[in-house]
Design a protein around this nucleic acid. Structure first.
Length: 756
DNA sequence: GTGTTAAAGGTTTTT
DNA sequence: CCTTTAACAC
């Protein structure tokens, strides 16, 4: 018996697929990573594929590391030659080798969102763009979108036509790009864009990688954007030794889990895969191995409300499990308090450990209140993505020094540190240097080197010179062979007096900053230890491309808190999804969008992702009111709650003492505008044992269901009885069907059957 | 050139 | 609510 016999028939088909394009539509929890790793092993073992010729692309480093680990385990020797990495890392690696062909230096810097903003501010100032009318952020957004769609500045300008705003965007894009190049820097989107550009313009580079990557696997394919699609399409279009194109590309995705449209993900990449790659084989993985029947059914019911999906129905052999629970709390405060207490209770009763729990929410801001409660109750926790370690001021300062050392053309970094710590170099001086640099077409740093020649800087030049020699000194030390790279941060701290300044401050905040800097040093040390050829640039690259989720450590016993987005690809025995209110989730941005239907569908997919993270128990909750931007907001429970059939839900009071069988009205589905005047009217009636429903009239027949019961209708499916009125010869039964809304039916015609 | 304070403004989600 | 920017005193 081989390892492949442990797969189900569909999984096996996917693993044993030979050549040509393959689309695996893998539902949540259907074992897609397993299929991918087994497929890699199969190719190597049984198809004589050289590990060297395999490329596996994921979206996060965490996913890449996991795949690497699993592949290592089943492939064994040779596995290290498989290229497993994220889109962005893959592109950096390619560009470090070939970007000189596009006129950049190979030691280019990667700009993060902060750097982008700073650069764009300069651009707007230079172009006289009124940022009150056109904010930098919206320009950057437009540029990012353009890059995702492979639209160059020139093309953008063409398309702008005579539209005023569009022309401004175009001009900003042009100048922004010019400055990036002058700074020898690339932003995140450029990493993909420039790699595609390289491949389009340089046949040699393209052929090199086409020959190298004969087999390509892409995970989370539904989240690829147009540029990423183009990239893998180019790579997969190589010609084999018989002069044929094989398109050995295997993508794994789930259109129902596409949640990154805002980041440019193009859903048509997956929906039209078969058109883009003729003769593509499609395999659906529909068996879920993760969740209980109740959880999976809830997920299926919710996602069924979306249109335009690839048809598939997830099923499971797992046990029924508990019903999904829903609790409506009074406030966000109570929500956080009760949930954290409940988790603590479960853990203390030894039924589970903290790392079995995840608390998921729509926005990062929601983590705050949980954090307060967790600290108060001494519960170990880890918040993912709240504030990025690398976005902290002190870290960015040190990194700016490092970037300056590596790439002197990086004006943004040089300007950041020119007066940090204070050297008495102010705005006036910086402006003069800047003007001189622009005039002479040199970088800001080069202008600093020539400070003495800059008119009007006779006095401040003496303040600039020590800075220049400081950088020069550091630069020459890292270039000496005997230099220990791990000492660079200490050298910076000592030479600049950065550390001393913090120490003298003596505040708690300063202490934390110092700790953070040492933390950064730790990361540098472990980088130097693990990297094959450690370089400063390599370290900076690693630092730029990490996401917070990469730092998640499953072996640590703490509750994890994160956004629903971050939770994709993960699973937990116990999952709490909180803030399930109209306006929070789905968010008000989606509700008030110009195309709400589309946006709500994306939110619904997000909800689907959230629900399907849970293995054993899923707890949903909402709060009647919640603090948002310092104000109280009263919101109705989310429409997504309504979309879960009542027979799958157990609705409990905040103290869990009362289990409601039936939720009264006002779970209405009209758009939940966030309004202080719109008090939540939701009340619950405690469940009363259904009395035999004999409503007096003896000529009436009897029915075996009552208010609060779940009943089944041939056409409308299951619903909950909200009212029964005896009228004449028949009962008028009001039923709330999650999918069809509230219907009034005559009992004798409707033929309703009770479900329990 | 630096430091402090008041007012304004703004938020999904992230590699 | 918290962060960022503007204004003003030193």
């Amino acid at each position: 018996m081989s390892i492949y016999d442990t797969l189900n028939p569909e999984q096996k088909k996917a693993v044993l697929h030979d050549k040509g394009p393959l689309l695996i539509l893998a539902g949540a929890g259907s074992g897609k990573t397993r299929v991918l790793t087994y497929r890699i092993a199969y190719l190597i073992e049984h198809r004589n594929v050289n590990p060297w010729n395999i490329l596996a692309i994921t979206f996060t480093n965490k996913a890449a590391n996991e795949m690497r680990e699993r592949v290592d385990k089943i492939v064994g020797a040779g596995a290290e030659n498989i290229w497993v990495s994220t889109f962005h890392s893959t592109c950096v690696r390619i560009l470090r080798r070939f970007i000189d062909r596009l006129g950049y230096d190979r030691n280019f810097t990667i700009y993060d969102t902060d750097d982008q903003k700073t650069l764009m501010r300069d651009v707007c100032k230079y172009l006289d763009i009124d940022t009150k009318r056109i904010p930098e952020k919206s320009i950057l957004n437009a540029i990012s979108k353009a890059k995702d769609e492979l639209i160059s500045p020139e093309e953008f300008e063409k398309r702008a036509g005579h539209d005023y705003t569009q022309r401004k965007y175009a001009a900003a894009y042009m100048e922004y790009q010019r400055r990036l190049k002058a700074s020898n820097a690339l932003d995140f989107d450029d990493l993909i864009f420039k790699t595609v550009e390289l491949f389009m313009n340089d046949k040699e580079a393209l052929t090199y990688y086409q020959n190298r990557f004969r087999y390509i696997m892409v995970d989370e394919y539904q989240d690829t954007n147009t540029a990423q699609f183009k990239l893998i399409h180019l790579l997969a279009s190589g010609i084999n030794e018989y002069g044929e194109r094989e398109y050995n590309i295997c993508v794994v995705g789930d259109d129902d889990q596409s949640i990154y449209k805002f980041r440019g993900a193009n859903i048509y990449n997956i929906l039209n895969f078969e058109q883009a790659f003729p003769n593509a084989k499609v395999i659906k993985l529909e068996q879920n191995y993760r969740s209980t029947k109740n959880i999976l059914n809830a997920a299926n019911e919710v996602i069924a409300n979306n249109k335009g999906r690839k048809q598939k129905t997830l099923w499971t052999d797992n046990e029924e499990g508990e019903p999904v629970s829903f609790t409506l709390f009074e406030s966000d405060f109570e929500e956080a308090d009760r949930i954290t207490s409940e988790i603590k209770r479960v853990v203390e009763s030894k039924q589970a450990s903290y790392n079995d729990f995840a608390i998921l929410y729509r926005t990062n801001a929601q983590s705050r209140i949980f954090e307060e409660k967790l600290v108060l109750k001494n519960i170990p926790y880890k918040i993912i993505g709240a504030l990025n370690f690398y976005a902290r001021k002190e870290i960015k300062d040190i990194l700016a020094y490092l970037k300056t050392i590596v790439n002197g053309k990086d004006d943004i970094s040089v300007k950041r540190i020119i007066n940090v710590p204070r050297r008495g170099i102010g705005l006036a001086t910086i402006d003069k240097v800047n003007d001189y640099a622009v005039l002479n077409d040199i970088s800001f740093y080069e202008a600093l080197v020539r400070a003495r020649q800059i008119p009007g800087l006779e006095r401040t030049a003496s303040k600039i010179e020590p800075f220049v020699s400081l950088i020069e000194g550091l630069r020459s030390s890292i270039n000496s062979d005997s230099y220990d790279l791990t000492g660079i941060i200490d050298d910076i701290l000592n030479a600049t007096g950065y550390l001393k300044e913090l120490e003298e401050e003596g505040t708690q905040e300063a202490e934390e900053r110092i700790d953070n800097i040492y933390e950064l040093k730790n990361k540098l040390v472990s980088y130097v230890e693990t990297a094959e050829i450690p370089t400063l640039n390599g370290f900076l690259e690693e630092v730029s491309l990490v996401s917070d989720i990469d730092s998640m450590d499953e072996s640590k016993d703490n509750i994890v808190l994160m956004t629903l987005h971050s939770a994709k690809g993960l699973e937990f025995p116990y999952v709490y999804i909180c803030g399930m209110e109209e306006g929070t989730f789905p968010g008000y941005m989606a509700i008030n969008a110009e195309n709400p239907e589309e946006e709500i569908e994306e939110e619904r997919r997000l909800c689907y992702v959230g629900i399907t993270r849970a293995q054993k128990r899923l707890s949903l909750s909402a709060a009647k009111f919640r603090m948002f931007r310092g104000e109280m907001h009263y919101n109705k429970p989310s429409r997504f709650i309504h979309e879960i059939p009542r027979h799958l839900l157990k609705i409990t009071s905040p103290d869990k003492k009362t289990v409601y069988k039936f939720a009264d009205d006002d779970f209405s589905k009209e758009s939940g505008q966030t309004s202080a005047y719109h008090l939540s009217q939701t009340h619950y009636k405690p469940f009363v044992t259904p009395e035999p429903k004999n409503f007096g009239g003896s000529n009436l027949g009897t029915i075996d269901y009552g208010i609060g019961d779940t009943v089944k209708h041939v056409k409308f499916g299951t619903g909950i009885v909200t009212n029964i009125v005896a009228g004449g010869k028949d009962y008028e039964v009001t039923v709330d069907f999650p999918r069809f809304g509230v219907k009034k039916l005559m009992a004798s015609f409707a033929n309703l059957t009770k479900v329990d």
